[in-house]
């Protein structure tokens, strides 16, 4: 059963990956990519990596749903609402793809892979949580503020209206001057 699921999901993920570049619509390309990632999530589920599998499906659908908006918004030069090619710099891309594929395939076949040592934990979700929250906590503590600062920084730089426009030159307006009022009245 696991093998059947693995092979079906593997074929779907590769086929959907190919579809990303064969289709002529930004929306279809984005959701083909989402389908490919979901198939990868299913493979993880078939390996009993329940938490990782479900999280991959959750995160990838979320990301692709938002990415589709950005792709359609930002493809201004080549309107994403019209049919368009999903590939560019074909010759370079083909050369890189062939070289990388040959390199990885050779490595996969030529490397004498070690056999598995040790057994998986009984509760993989718990051991994942303990790894992230225990021995890798320092990494998480470092990365989280950096990621958060990046998000805030990008928003501050990207937002067309700054706080001086909202609250006045001396930031002394009681209520912000927004084109569309928010629900909290702040």
């Amino acid at each position: 059963m696991t093998e059947v699921v693995f092979w079906v999901a593997a074929v779907v993920s590769v086929a959907a990956g190919v579809a990303v570049f064969r289709t002529d619509s930004m929306a279809r390309a984005t959701y083909a990519l989402a389908a490919s990632f979901v198939a990868v999530g299913v493979i993880l589920l078939a390996f009993d990596l329940d938490y990782l599998g479900v999280i991959v499906i959750l995160m990838m659908i979320m990301e692709m749903a938002i990415m589709a908006l950005f792709m359609i918004m930002l493809m201004g030069m080549n309107p994403a609402l019209m049919p368009m090619s999903m590939v560019h710099s074909k010759r370079t891309a083909t050369a890189i793809a062939v070289v990388v594929f040959l390199g990885l395939a050779t490595a996969a076949l030529a490397i004498p892979w070690p056999g598995r040592s040790g057994a998986p934990a009984a509760d993989l979700t718990r051991s994942l949580g303990e790894a992230v929250m225990g021995s890798k906590m320092l990494v998480m503590l470092t990365i989280s503020p950096v990621l958060f600062a990046t998000i805030v920084g990008t928003l501050v730089l990207g937002h067309p209206r700054d706080r001086y426009q909202r609250y006045g030159d001396d930031l002394d307006r009681a209520r912000p001057d927004d084109p569309i009022e928010g629900g909290v009245g702040r």
């Binding site: 929306a27 959701y31 989402a34 329940d50 938490y51 479900v54 999280i55 499906i57 959750l58 659908i61 979320m62 692709m64 749903a65 589709a68 908006l69 509760d123 979700t125």
Partner: peptide, 25 residues
């Protein structure tokens, strides 16, 4: 009987993000 049933439910909720948008697209 999934050991991560709560997360699975949430993942299906996220599926609805995509589906409602696709229904509009």
């Amino acid at each position: 009987d999934s050991p991560v049933g709560v997360v699975w439910f949430n993942a299906m909720d996220v599926m609805l993000w995509a589906l409602w948008w696709l229904a509009g697209w």
